[in-house]
């Protein structure tokens, strides 16, 4: 299927990607090509086929409810672009 510029904008907004006007045009065209290719799946009937949600025949994998030491917060914060008072700092939300 062909994606419109509007659809590309919607998808980019959901995915938190900022696109220039040229990029929107380029991606609309490229994504449409891939979606056209994906549409070749319509050639086969998948009616009644169970979706493959998990490839492995395993189930119920657990750990026990036992505490282990957390990571040192200096370490967990070491890669933060911006932190203050041992917390991640982000610009205003609204």
């Amino acid at each position: 299927m062909a994606l419109t510029i509007k659809e590309v904008e919607h998808v980019a907004q959901l995915a938190r990607l900022k696109l220039t006007e040229e990029e929107k045009v380029k991606f609309a065209q490229q994504l449409s090509t891939v979606l056209d290719y994906a549409d070749t799946l319509n050639a086969i009937s998948t009616e009644g086929v169970e979706p493959l949600i998990h490839i492995l025949p395993i189930r119920n994998v657990f750990r026990e409810d036992q505490r282990k030491p957390s990571m040192e917060r200096e370490e967990i914060l070491a890669n933060a672009p911006l932190a203050e008072g041992f917390q991640y700092k982000v610009p205003k939300i609204m």
């Binding site: 750990r63 036992q66 505490r67 282990k68 957390s70 990571m71 917060r73 967990i76 914060l77 008072g85 041992f86 917390q87 991640y88």
Partner: peptide, 17 residues
């Protein structure tokens, strides 16, 4: 994950990757 759920700890002391 195995981090503690205790309430009221210092910020980011109960975290892991």
């Amino acid at each position: 994950c195995s981090c503690s759920t205790a309430f009221g700890a210092e910020p980011n002391t109960q975290t892991c990757p």
